[in-house]
Amino acid sequence: MKRLFEFIGFEPGRFHARWISGSEAQKVVETARKVTEEVRALGPNKKMRDDRC
């Protein structure tokens, strides 16, 4: 999925997939923080935006 997203021109880092078990609370927190930081750094997404209205 990530590869096809990047193939059509989404920035690498816009899409993340992680396998996290229900018992890995720390990993959830870390991943969420990391994803938020990386995506925020990329700025607002322009691809696939529906600008109607």
């Binding site: 990047e6 059509i8 021109g9 691809k47």
Partner: peptide, 15 residues
Amino acid sequence: AIENLSVEEKSRYWD
């Protein structure tokens, strides 16, 4: 050939 394009070029191509 498409993989080797930059992010912007890929995006423009598929758009």
